[in-house]
Amino acid sequence: MESWHLPDEDLRRYGERTLAPPVLWSVEAHLTACADCRDRLAAGQPGLARDGWARLDAELDAPVPGVVERLLTRAGVAEHTARLLAATPVLRLSWLAAVVSTLALTAVLAAVLHPVVFLAAAPLLPVCGVALSFGPRADPTYEIAVVAPMHTFRLLLLRCVAVLSATTALSAVASLALPDVGLAALGWFLPALTLTLLTLALTARLGPVLAAAGVALGWIAVVAATRGAGAGGSAVFVPAGQLASAVAAVLAAVILARIHRAFESPRRFR
């Protein structure tokens, strides 16, 4: 038998489900061991035992979060948002494995040939991610998502932020393997942001696949046209080029904010 008992206030709040951890865990641990407190709880709130069974039954068939979902929740993402993101095609482990392989390959090529190989390839990864995040070709539940009350643009943004975060983290790790080029090793970051926003802005008009293809081709053309300057091998990766990239990112963001309602007209997503 327990030598102490729960205060009435804690029991009441437990019954009302307003107790938060760690007090909640402490109360539950005590209730497991103390029959007197369980009786007091049942006497105070007769419906609780029945609700408790219903709650237990509900938990038994509730979905068990996967790896991505658990990581997102631990990072502070809301449970329902994590569930949405877990269904994002490009957040599956197979796609993340492809990103890691591509980064590893380009990092090796950068060491053997020139850092520009990595710096030019890294910004294209989130662009591919955007193309594979949304639309009838990439998302099996696209049609259901389009007619759901949640704004299409919000869903697209959520997915793009997740893709950009994942590729940025992986690219940052891969940057460590680059030959010594100083800060130019991080020259891929601003272009990655710019190209992602441009792809999003063009998606409203062209659809995700065409938009991503156009942006990728444009990026390769710009890098090729400005090759030779600085340690990064292109004027895009010197401070002036980075500034231009930042300005382009802001412009793309402004355009996106102005045209976001176009995402409600899914006729263009082909």
């Binding site: 329902h80 949405l84 949640m150």
Partner: peptide, 13 residues
Amino acid sequence: DYVAILKELTDRR
């Protein structure tokens, strides 16, 4: 459950 979130049901229970 996924579709329910798209339909704005955010409270898990």
